[in-house]
Structures are given as C-alpha cells and as structure tokens.
C-alpha cells in the first residue's frame, strides 16, 4: 500500500489538554477537554476531522499551532516530520511550514487593511493578488478593513492568507461556512493540489458532504476523544460500513438522510462517565462497556468500541 510508505508529517500521540478554571468559591479545578488523543496525517493526505461540537476539534488545532490560551495545560507528544514539535518549534513553523485557517473570523486584525495582513512580512503583492483573484475577491478588497467584509469574504481572506507561503501542513478549522458551492470547490481543489504536491492537510469540518468528497480518511471526535478513524469511502458507502454507533448516528442525522437526531448530549467535561464516553446514548451498551475502551483496528479502520466488528 502506497499510504504506508508516505512520510508522516504530523503525529499526535496521547495528547491531553486541560483548562484550569475557577469553580464554586475560589477553588481551582481542572477541566480536561482532550483525553489521550492520537492521530496522524501523512504527506499527500487529507484527513478530515468531524464530530460533535465542543468535542475538542479547535482545541486540537490550537494545540498543534501552539496558540492555546494561558490557562491551558498540555500533556502527550507531537511529532512533526518525525521530530518532537515543541512550543519553540511551533513558533518558528507557524505561518511558514504550518499554515492555519482559523474557525473564527475574529482572527483578522481589525485595524489592518486585509491586503497587508495577507501579505504579512514576507509575502509579495503578486502572490496576494493572484490568490484574491482565485477566490473571487475583487481588486478593491485588499484596501478594506475586516469590518467591511461579508462573512464569506472574510473566510476567503483567511484562506488566502494561509496559502501565501508553501506550507507542508495545513490545519483548516471550518474553512468553508458561508462560501458558495463554487468557492467551496475551489478551496478543496487547492487543498487537493497542495496534498498532491506533498503537503498534509488536517481539515476540521461540520460539512459532512465536504468531508466525504474531499478527504482520504475521516476521524470522528466525541467528548475529547477519537471514536473512529476510517477511509472516507466507508462513510460514502453508508451506515453498515462504519464501526462506531456514534458515526452511524451521524449519518442518520443528515438532512438528506433521516434528519433524525440521536437523543441526549455529549457528556460535560467536568462530569465524564467511567468507561465508554458514549455509553449514555448507546443502544448497544452492556457491562463490557464500563471499563477502559482502547482504540482497536477493525476492517481497515480504527474504532473505540468493544462491540465493533
């Protein structure tokens, strides 16, 4: 298999992230939002990350970029091209080899014209204009301030900004909301081209159609862990091809399928149950689900469920 021989660009091993919070009174508590999470992205590959909102997708992105807030604390290992990715390394690679498209358009500097922001310190005007043209941003846009842009335009500015330099790893957190179909496709085409040129792409998205179409593999997040990693093909095939009950519930909830929501909610980080984090909502649970549930290889994918076959 060719995939095996491609270099791992990013590997996240047993990553935990917690926030120190002031709870009742002035006692400090620790809220763990990512629990021993592992995944990797290879050169030439687009790995989509889908999953519950609040499951830690953006936190993972911020941890990779080294931009977690001050009250966050991190444990575990990250390797970039086989070398440890320390906070110091991240700082040097960020915006050069590692490009980031943030979820919030608030990342734009409100006081700087967008053309200047996108060029940054090293970018050229030619490259910036080329990207603006590609993403349908008219000539005049480069002289505008962020507040003058529509939601979709701001998003395109963020994309252009990430593609200014030749990155090896792109971390895109919800890059497409508010974009038309044509621009969404254009964005994906850019990701594909960059992947084909040897880049690794981590694409966080709620747009499942997008993930199905664009990704090579899909990782499904729930309550701060990965519950399933599988080839995108399996998601296209339908429920039976998937391994975890949560991934299957995902397909049932799509408006083009049953639009039927699985009842219940993701457990709150401060009150996590013992054993399987999905147990409360799972129709297939039994006594075996009460212990620690390891990630297992099943049918060419990985799953965190004792019953998956």
């Amino acid at each position: 298999m060719e995939q095996k021989t491609k270099q791992e660009i990013l590997s996240v091993e047993e990553l935990s992230v917690s926030f120190s919070m002031y709870q009742k009174g002035l006692r400090k508590g620790n809220l763990e939002v990512l629990h021993k999470l592992s995944l990797s992205v290879r050169a030439g590959e687009i790995l989509a990350v889908a999953g519950s909102s609040g499951s830690g997708k953006s936190i993972l992105a911020h941890a990779i970029l080294g931009i977690l807030p001050g009250n966050a604390c991190m444990d575990g290992r990250m390797l970039y091209k086989g070398q440890p990715l320390t906070e110091k390394e991240k700082k040097g690679l960020r915006g050069r080899e590692i490009a980031f498209i943030p979820q919030s358009v608030d990342y734009l500097d409100p006081l700087m014209r967008v053309g200047k922001q996108v060029r940054g310190v090293r970018g050229t005007k030619e490259r910036q204009r080329e990207l603006f043209r590609k993403y349908g941003l008219e000539e005049g846009v480069e002289r505008k301030y962020p507040f003058m842009l529509s939601g979709g335009m701001a998003r395109r500015v963020l994309i252009a900004s990430a593609l200014m330099e030749d990155a090896c790893l792109i971390v895109a957190d919800e890059p497409t909301p508010g974009l038309s179909e044509r621009l969404t496709e254009e964005t994906l085409k850019s990701f594909r081209e960059m992947a084909d040129a040897g880049c690794a792409v981590l694409l966080i998205t709620h747009d499942i159609d997008l993930a199905f179409k664009a990704a090579d593999r899909i990782a499904v997040f729930y309550a701060g862990t990965v519950v399933e990693i599988a080839p995108a093909e399996d998601f296209r095939k339908g429920k039976e091809a998937l391994r975890h009950p949560y991934s299957r519930a995902f397909l049932e909830a799509l408006p083009q399928n049953e639009f039927c929501p699985l009842p219940g909610f993701q457990p709150y980080a401060a009150k996590l149950p013992k054993g399987c984090l999905f147990a409360e909502r799972c129709r297939e649970r039994n006594e075996m689900c009460m212990g620690e549930i390891p990630m297992r290889k099943v049918r060419g994918g990985e799953v965190r469920c004792v019953h998956a076959r």
């Binding site: 519950s52 508010g178 747009d207 499942i208 909830a253 039927c260 929501p261 699985l262």
Partner: peptide, 16 residues
C-alpha cells in the same frame, strides 16, 4: 446560516 457551526446531530436537535 445558523447551523453551519453545529455538528449534524446537534443541528437536527436544534431544528427540532
């Protein structure tokens, strides 16, 4: 575009 930031299960719940 109120539900593009929600996962599909939450989207279906919120619309319900």
């Amino acid at each position: 575009e109120i539900s593009t930031m929600l996962d599909v299960i939450t989207q279906a719940q919120v619309w319900e």
